[in-house]
């Protein structure tokens, strides 16, 4: 089953219960701030246009960070979570550059730092078939957990029944090639702190186009270099030999 989260921003009261629940289940310090993502805040309530906006990892279907990581420390599980293995990470921070939503954060103050982000409660809940802490804590039902296809249907139905309440965009359906976190809103997303421009194709395609060319490039390059060297070398040898033989005849 591909799990997903649907957050209906028109129903969110900004109570921050999700933030607290996230801290509790992940053992994160309670003191840090609730309004901006950082290494100790994996979901945050941002405020844009006077509206509370819950932000966390989009759990992309084909994540940019997973393609970026040179050691495979980030993976997308079959349940839908994008998870991080600190034991593999070497700390290059390419995932932070790569993420179109700028979600991964770093423990800058730590001597041995880790990349930190929402893991869809993979180890504590999702793996066992439970729902993540944040959706379980939401008192208003603004953020709910379910099967991705079912949530897409639910969201589209809400848009159809209340066309005056929502803009006709289900964010996360095709954004970044599709994500496991979906949003409904009354306002365009770029006004709510979401990226101003976003591709609707999977991001890893952009670098795979180059990477997949490498075997051809290398073999063609090697063939060219070797033949150039071989031809030039042979001509020099032949020139030397003919010189020698002409010396001998003389």
């Amino acid at each position: 089953m591909k799990s997903a989260i649907l957050t209906d921003l028109t129903r969110c009261t900004g109570c921050e219960a999700c933030v607290m629940a996230c801290r509790e289940i992940n053992g994160l310090p309670r003191t840090s701030e609730n309004h901006r993502l950082n290494a100790h805040t994996w979901t945050a309530i941002e405020h844009h246009q006077g509206i509370p906006i819950r932000r966390h990892c989009m759990q992309c279907e084909q994540p940019s960070c997973v393609a970026a990581c040179p050691v495979g420390a980030l993976t997308k599980t079959s349940e839908g979570a994008v998870i991080y293995d600190a034991g593999r990470c070497m700390g290059c921070r390419y995932c932070m550059i790569a993420c179109p939503f700028s979600i991964p954060k770093y423990e800058w103050q730590a001597r041995i730092p880790r990349v930190q982000k929402c893991s869809f409660c993979y180890d504590s809940a999702l793996k066992k078939g439970h729902e993540p802490a944040c959706t379980a804590a939401c008192p208003s039902g603004a953020t709910i957990y379910g099967e991705r296809e079912a949530l897409i249907k639910e969201a589209q139905q809400r848009i159809a029944t209340h066309p005056q309440r929502y803009i006709p965009t289900l964010y996360g359906l095709t954004e970044a090639g599709g994500a496991s976190v979906l949003y409904l809103s009354a306002m365009p997303f770029e006004k709510l702190g979401f990226p101003a421009t976003i591709q609707h194709k999977p991001y890893p395609d952009l670098t795979w186009q180059e990477l997949s060319r490498i075997p051809t490039m290398v073999s063609a390059g090697a063939a060219f270099l070797f033949s150039a060297w071989w031809i030039i070398n042979r001509r020099i040898k032949m020139a030397n030999e003919s010189e020698r033989s002409s010396d001998q005849t003389a």
Binding site: A67, P70, V71, G72, M90, G91, I112, P113, P204, L211
Partner: peptide
């Protein structure tokens, strides 16, 4: 200096991700 875990610099040698440009550069 720049890597968060400099003692993991060798990791791409054994932990492969051929979809990563960083892996190839390394």
């Amino acid at each position: 200096f720049d890597l968060g875990k400099p003692y993991h610099i060798w990791r791409p040698i054994v932990m492969w991700n051929h979809h990563s440009v960083m892996f190839e550069v390394g």
